[in-house]
């Protein structure tokens, strides 16, 4: 059976070296560019007419806008307005990566931990830097919840710090693991049908079963693609909320 992990291999398309660092244009980069292209085409086509009564594409695009806008407003509050383009970019980048990855022969750049980790650490660093700049030392009160006896601080503060540092890790691993697991599953079932075909006439007929399972899995993966993009964006909102107000 073929290696289900082969789909995640990064293959250089145009070798590129800047200052001794290998930044080759790879299949991953290609699909990142594709997500830019699809976003451009989608948003430009949808907003071409700027209609008062929107058409289908415009409704779709406005739905994305409203969804992210509501998400930012409800989790961060009115002050979250300035983070809206950031959250929207993250949402569209992850969504496009997840969805384009479902095209056969494509590459899913969100199935790579380095990509999801880069996004989540960007949020994490932004929260820490903006939080310290805006609230100063008071930002550290995140680690000392109000209403807790001081005697518990030696236990509580380390736990709070650990859970705070775990945020970007869980944030990135959640998306990466979901994408990787889904794609491995698709590959494994595809591999079943290929293996069955080689076993003769009965095998050829039976190979339809894994294909049907895969069809169902693809539908499921579409849901996961949307859901994980949403989850990634809303977690980014929740973390960014710490820069706006500190509850305790």
């Amino acid at each position: 059976m073929a290696d289900p992990l082969h789909q995640f291999v990064i293959e250089p398309i145009v070798p590129l070296n800047i200052g001794g660092v290998d930044v080759s244009f790879t299949n991953s980069s290609l699909w990142m560019m594709a997500s830019i292209g699809v976003s451009f085409v989608l948003f430009n086509t949808a907003m071409r007419r700027k209609a008062l009564v929107p058409g289908r594409l415009q409704v779709l695009v406005e739905m994305f806008y409203q969804m992210v806008s509501d998400m930012v407003k409800s989790t961060i509050g009115p002050e979250g307005r300035r983070y809206f383009p950031l959250i929207f970019t993250i949402f569209m980048l992850v969504l496009m990566g997840n969805l384009l990855g479902l095209i056969p022969y494509s590459f899913t750049y969100t199935s790579h931990i380095i990509v999801t980790a880069a996004l989540s650490f960007m949020i994490f660093l932004a929260v820490v830097v903006i939080g310290l700049a805006r609230h100063g030392v008071h930002f550290l009160s995140l680690f000392a919840p109000a209403g807790v006896p001081v005697i518990l601080y030696p236990f509580l503060v380390p736990i709070e710090i650990i859970s705070y540092i775990a945020r970007p890790i869980t944030h990135s691993v959640r998306l990466f693991a979901n994408m990787m697991a889904g794609h491995i599953m698709l590959k494994v079932f595809a591999g079943f049908s290929v293996a069955l075909i080689t076993t003769g006439a009965v095998g050829v007929a039976a190979s339809a079963v894994p294909v049907l399972v895969n069809a169902a899995l693809i539908a499921f993966e579409l849901l996961i693609a949307l859901l994980q993009a949403y989850v990634f964006a809303i977690l980014a909102c929740i973390y960014l909320k710490d820069t706006v107000e500190i509850a305790h």
């Binding site: 095209i103 079932f189 190979s207 899995l217 693809i218």
Partner: peptide, 9 residues
């Protein structure tokens, strides 16, 4: 979906 499934195969 079925075509995609076969394409994966």
């Amino acid at each position: 979906f079925i075509t995609a499934g076969m394409a994966f195969a």
